[in-house]
């Protein structure tokens, strides 16, 4: 008798309790909204998995701080595009509409009650870009930029801001040194029914890292045709100017997500999943996503990639 009771109790004890899953989505639900998937997310969404990353090359991000009312800025855009075209898949340009103090005269928007409206009526700025322009000190005006947020090599200045005439040299220096300390893999899906980007990223340390490193993810409109002041042409107000790789917002907050903290061994991996809803003023365009790993203390970008859906 006692044995049978023992066995019965043993079975009862052996029961696992029920696992009540409050949030079925792995990771941070606040940044990953499955309701943006047009269909049954659980059964129809193709959730990517990443294999080993065989990349051995560092990439470069040219942040072109510009403004649609900045007549000198198209020259900077041409310089940036030239470096990008010369180094396909290694150099990526992002057009950041921000200037001295965040919004300067060059980023000014005409409102509907102004006679010039709708000329320069589109708001190209975004919260993250405006924050960078003020938080990372040293921007003098437009066009100005940063190349992986590293100072000019050999310069005594610690400023990260570089005039566009030096962008090519600094980018090529970084490519030449090829000091790869981190890798990133990314998969992106876009659904026009919901104007949503689904972004999946894996960051990996390629060497021992010490410090605090954030993963920052941008939503990019690849080509926005709108007004741009250009002193190189006459008349200066160009209606159908092609704005290249416009930074339209951050997928995971202004400074991204901290992914590596303290001393990180080589080979450490972090996976992140995000969704991003395209804002009203940038709908019905073609998009891309830029992801970079940044030293949170120095702003230096260790690696950057760009992926189109």
């Amino acid at each position: 008798m006692k044995y049978s009771i023992f066995y019965l109790l043993a079975i009862v004890v052996a029961f696992g309790s029920c696992d009540r899953v409050e949030n079925p989505i792995p990771g941070d639900a606040a940044n990953y909204d499955v309701t943006l998937f047009p269909g049954n997310y659980a059964t129809a969404y193709s959730y990517p998995t990443f294999g080993s990353n065989s990349n051995n090359n560092i990439n470069v991000l040219i942040e072109d701080y510009t403004g649609h009312q900045c007549g000198n800025c198209p020259a900077g855009a041409i310089a940036a595009k030239g470096v990008e075209n010369a180094n396909p898949g290694r150099v990526f340009v992002v057009s950041e509409h921000a200037g001295f103090g965040g919004i300067s005269q060059y980023q000014r928007i005409h409102t509907p009650n102004e006679p010039e409206y709708p000329k320069y009526g589109r708001n190209f700025t975004n919260e993250a870009g405006l924050t960078y322009a003020t938080a990372i000190t040293g921007i003098l005006g437009n066009p100005y930029g940063m190349i992986n947020r590293k100072p000019v090599a050999g310069s005594s200045s610690a400023s990260l801001w570089i005039p566009y005439g030096q962008w090519q040299t600094n980018a090529e220096n970084i490519l030449l040194q090829n000091n790869l300390r981190a890798n990133i893999q990314m998969a992106v899906n876009y659904y026009d029914e919901t104007d949503a980007l689904f972004v999946h990223i894996e960051a990996e340390s390629k060497t021992t890292l010490t410090g605090n490193y954030n993963l920052v993810v941008y939503a990019i409109a690849k080509d926005v045709v709108d007004w741009q002041k250009n002193y190189a042409v006459f008349p200066n107000d160009v209606e159908f100017y092609h704005h290249h790789n416009v930074h339209i917002g951050n997928v995971n907050g202004t400074w991204g997500d901290p992914v590596f903290l303290g001393e990180i061994a080589s080979g450490a991996k972090v996976r992140k999943d995000y969704t991003y809803k395209i804002k009203e003023n940038f709908k019905d365009l073609e998009y891309a996503v830029i992801a970079y790993l940044m030293n949170a203390d120095t702003y230096e970008i260790l690696q950057v990639i760009m992926v189109e859906p």
Partner: peptide, 11 residues
């Protein structure tokens, strides 16, 4: 499953 957190024990 990598896409979802599935309950391993269902009562």
């Amino acid at each position: 499953n990598t896409q979802l957190v599935l309950p391993e024990n269902v009562a």
